[in-house]
């Protein structure tokens, strides 16, 4: 069978579908001081999943949406915030302010961050010493 680390080079999704791959990618991003980008990507996925689960309180969803907004979007100098378009940030801010919590409210922001990873940090990771040493 194909070793996992070769699969990681196929696509960003193959990498993010493997625990060891995520761990190594995160170590690399930490070195580059942008691990928040990966955490934000997973937080968006987790937020959508929470919404899909029955029995989760509305209050918890609101609290989580606020927490994601505060940690990653509010600070315009943050690594995540800098990669997200102003219109997307306004949309999320509006959702939080009006307490309009929607399962898809972070989707556009997640897509923008994902594109940035695919074009930037992911190719760099595949060329990094961390990845090459691992292989």
């Amino acid at each position: 069978p194909t070793p996992p680390y070769l699969k990681w080079a196929e696509s960003l999704h193959s990498l993010l579908d493997d625990q060891d791959g995520i761990h190594l990618f995160r170590t690399f991003l930490k070195q580059e001081e942008c691990a928040d980008v990966l955490d934000f990507w997973f937080a968006c996925t987790g937020f959508r999943k929470l919404e899909a689960n029955e029995g989760q309180g509305e209050e918890k969803k609101l609290k989580l949406a606020k927490a994601i907004y505060k940690k990653y979007i509010l600070d315009n100098n943050g690594i995540v915030s800098r990669q997200i378009k102003p219109a997307t940030k306004s949309f999320i801010k509006d959702c939080v302010m009006r307490l309009h919590i929607d399962p898809a409210m972070f989707d556009q922001a997640q897509t923008e961050i994902q594109t940035m990873m695919e074009e930037n940090t992911y190719p760099l990771f595949l060329k990094s010493d961390i990845y090459l040493e691992y292989t």
Partner: peptide, 20 residues
């Protein structure tokens, strides 16, 4: 009551793939 950070961490962990 969960702190915001705990809530975020829980959310991030829930999105990660489970060990194969």
């Amino acid at each position: 009551i969960d702190s915001e950070d705990d809530l975020l961490q829980e959310c991030i962990s829930s999105a990660m793939p489970k060990k194969k």
